[in-house]
Amino acid sequence: MTIPSPLLELDGVVAGYAAPVVGPVSLTLHHGEVVGLTGPNGSGKTTLVNAVIGTARVLEGRLQKAPGLRVNVQRQHPVRLPEMPFTGTDLLRLVDAGERPVPDSIRPFVERRIDRLSGGQYQLLQVWACLSAPADLVILDEPTTNMDPASKRSLEDLLRASHELVGSILVISHDHAFLERVTSRTARIAA
């Protein structure tokens, strides 16, 4: 199914829970774009993600998603239970990653239990699970968390290699240099 563009349109969106947390924010994502979103700590970037997936409220403005839009979100702090008897392969099978070849940066640990991976390895696996699963929009929330420079380079390679797999990617990060390297444009949220 082809999703009409724009995939996501935010027009003066003020989002929050009982009270406003972020906004107003205006942003449009078209098919095929890799867009960055940055802002200082506490500016409400994650709340904006929550508004997109429906767990925070849009208090003002307009948030329009293309009909049938499939969204995968990689959280800054993905679910990490004390015991998770799953391998990376289990996780990729769960998200319908299909027959896409596992990237070299992930292959060495894809058969290990995910609760025995380092923070950076787990983050990289989670990003690939989001990118390789069927989706029209992938939102990566601070994907460089827990990553050393080598993992960051692997992440950049993943994003470049995945560009054509995913309709559009929204990368949220406070790492401006990283955003400059992997996105075509960056929007900024004020404090």
Binding site: I53, G54, T55, K65, P67, G68, L69, R70, V71, N72, V73, R75, P78, V79, L81, M84, F86, L91, L94, V95, A129, A133
Partner: peptide, 19 residues
């Protein structure tokens, strides 16, 4: 099974407006 596991491991997958 798949839905239960996804709900635990990747609860933020959204299709359309449905979680």
């Amino acid at each position: 099974s798949r839905r239960l596991l996804l709900g635990c491991l990747l609860p933020d997958r959204v299709v359309g407006d449905r979680r």
